[in-house]
């Protein structure tokens, strides 16, 4: 009976407040060896496939990467020019300029989490400067944010989780909305869109940055379905995420402007508010 009561109290406190993060972090360090052990065979396989690659395939890959890099360099050259111009124009307009964000590559550990929530375990923790609420992206778009941090690992909630909401903007017309995870299958939904909202299938949806947590302008996904049912108060707009939620091995943790790993470590009590 006492244990049932203790569980109920724990659940309530964990759900409502943040006091238990310390307990969770402590216990997480206990389970970390387990998670590492589970991850080890996958790591080994990765390592083996890296080591046992033939010279030929490496050369092919090298050539391909070289070509790709040339392309990207060319694009980046133009981009930095545009960025400089953008900054100049912003200064002319006297508006706050965007400073480049810093990123850190984190590896997704091959550990299955609770099947009902969309979470992943990362191999970077507070020692690497990760903090609560830190945005997580991949090469294609926004993936989620960090919800638990321990010294050596952290757990991230994906944007497709039903408990995750994200302020977004449609690039075509600047329309603002809130994207909420749908949970059942991977996908998002724009909440409370009026029936006459100008949203079309294939519109690109990006973060608006209004939450002060996610940097603005990162792609979230494309509108995959717009259902207008006059019997309902709101239009049903579904968004297919552009990040590869279940196929990534490497993801990027983002520090916004003015936040560095060192700076964040000093103010862990105020996560994600420094943007």
């Amino acid at each position: 009976m006492a244990f049932v009561l203790a569980s109920l109290v724990l659940m309530t406190v964990d759900h409502r407040y943040r006091h238990l993060e310390v307990v969770r972090a402590g216990l997480s360090v206990l389970v970390l060896p387990l998670q590492l052990a589970v991850n080890a065979p996958f790591q080994l396989a990765q390592w083996a496939s890296d080591r046992l690659a033939t010279r030929r395939s490496l050369m092919d890959e090298n050539a391909r990467l070289r070509a790709e890099r040339l392309l990207i360099d060319a694009r980046l050259g133009r981009f930095s020019d545009l960025e400089a111009e953008n900054r100049r124009l912003r200064e002319l307009l006297d508006s706050s300029s965007r400073v480049g964000e810093r990123v850190l590559v984190a590896e997704v550990m091959a550990v299955d989490m609770d099947p009902f929530s969309h979470k992943i375990l990362l191999n970077r923790g507070s020692r690497d400067g990760a903090f609560l609420g830190q945005p997580l992206i991949d090469a294609n778009g926004v993936m989620g944010q960090v919800v638990h941090v321990t010294p050596f690992s952290s757990t991230a909630l994906l944007v497709t989780d039903p408990n995750h909401a994200l302020p977004v903007q449609v690039t075509r017309n600047g329309l603002r909305a809130i994207a909420i995870g749908r949970g059942v299958s991977s996908g998002l939904e724009l909440a409370h869109m009026p029936l006459n909202a100008d949203v079309r299938v294939d519109d690109l949806v990006v973060t608006s940055g209004l939450d002060g947590r996610f940097p603005s302008g990162y792609p979230v996904g494309r509108v995959s379905q717009v259902r207008l049912d006059t019997g309902r108060p709101f239009a049903e707009v579904r968004v297919e995420p552009s990040a590869h939620m279940e196929r990534n091995r490497e993801v990027l943790l983002v520090w916004g402007a003015g936040q560095g790993p060192g700076e964040v470590a000093r103010t862990p009590a105020n996560p994600g508010k420094g943007l």
């Binding site: 203790a6 724990l10 659940m11 964990d14 375990l121």
Partner: peptide
């Protein structure tokens, strides 16, 4: 803790 569920759920 292992599955990242609410603390106390499996307990």
């Amino acid at each position: 803790v292992l599955t990242g569920a609410l603390l106390g759920q499996h307990a």
